[in-house]
Nucleic acid binder design. Structure first.
Lengths: 197, 197
DNA sequence: TAGCATAACTAACATTTGTTACCAGTTAGT
DNA sequence: ACTAACTGGTAACAAATGTTAGTTATGCTA
């Protein structure tokens, strides 16, 4: 009887969710069937239900894991005492690094959260709204202190966050510059674009 | 016998495709069924096939319509005689305006092209690659002429194009600034971020 | 080695899916 | 008025979907 291929120190549930993240990224949540997932895991579809309770649960775990990670990071940054522009840079760098090193789950939770159902859907929508609002507040603070250009803060947030999701193209491209260089380039353009000079 | 609700001067096929664009944006291509679409159009699912030949065809039409539009615009811009940074600005403004005024189809073709099947899939992938490459070339030209910061051109392209897709959030937000103000803000940040000062 | 929890399998389910076949009104051109 | 092209409806299809039930194999611990 074929056992689930256990990747290093992770439970079977974690293995399933990691694999699902990859498939959800490649094909989207709706276009990924439980049989697709099972095949990639090396098991029959029904066997997945020994570890997870539904397809929806997988997406929930992915989305909330990522949401919590970003939320607690901005807590930390916001508590520190530094110029607003530095806070924005810290948040941006965190996003870039997460997209570099936890690509699949970050990308999926950003693109596929719409397929959650209530109450999880409302919950994640609220979290996303709050999160963007917090970044906007930091930007507005930076504008007041003349660290940042006089621009519409929500627009700046929208640009920042969406620009980062472009790292998906980087992952799929052949001739990659290194992650570090990518990060510095993105910072140069985006922080350069926000900063008052 | 219920007739298709004819919107102003458009054929039935166009009505179907417009409605499909809206649903594909809201729910994604895979999560939109032909029965969903039929209901929104005000018709039975089978009747749709009097006007289109398959679900896939709808996505194809959307994707290639948008791709052609962007491709022919960059042709025009590239042929003109202006500084590289101005060309980039022109391309960026076009993207912004398209996202403002043809939101559904632009957004859908950007997000859902992965669900095309060959030969359309390969075709669109090539077009997208070529398009990004052309923008990158303009940027590299601008760097040579010291109009643009010394940055990695493909990274700049990736930021530009993905930032624009953030306009989706703007469409869904309550307290909207006007489209014109949004455009100027995006230009300020992104062109400001690229420009050598 | 016996026992038990874990995790795999097979079979089947009720729905939903995209699509086709076929038929019936409607409309436009002769 | 006759015909042909349209455009709608109903019924049905095979395949795919998420999930459950029931059973069997595995491997750890006593």
């Amino acid at each position: 009887m074929a056992k689930i291929r256990q990747r290093k120190n992770s439970t079977r549930k974690e293995t399933i969710i990691e694999t699902a993240a990859r498939l959800f990224r490649e094909r989207g949540f709706s276009a990924t069937s439980m049989r697709d997932l099972a095949e990639q895991v090396g098991v029959e579809a029904a066997s997945l239900y020994n570890h997870i309770s539904s397809k929806a649960e997988i997406l929930q775990e992915l989305c909330f894991k990522v949401a919590n990670k970003f939320m607690s990071h901005i807590d930390k940054v916001d508590a520190e005492d530094m110029p607003a522009i530095k806070k924005i840079e810290a948040v941006l760098r965190f996003h870039i690094q997460q997209m570099l090193h936890h690509y699949e789950e970050v990308y999926v939770s950003d693109r596929e959260w719409k397929h959650l159902t209530d109450p999880y859907l409302s919950n994640i929508q609220t979290q996303r709204r709050v999160y963007r609002q917090r970044i906007a507040s930091i930007i507005e603070d930076g504008i007041k202190k003349n660290e940042i250009k006089k621009i519409d803060a929500p627009t700046a947030v929208l640009i920042m966050l969406h620009a980062v999701s472009g790292i998906e193209s980087w992952h799929r491209s052949k001739e990659k510059i290194t992650g570090e260089v990518l990060e510095e380039n993105m910072i140069a353009i985006l922080i350069g674009g926000l900063q008052n000079k």
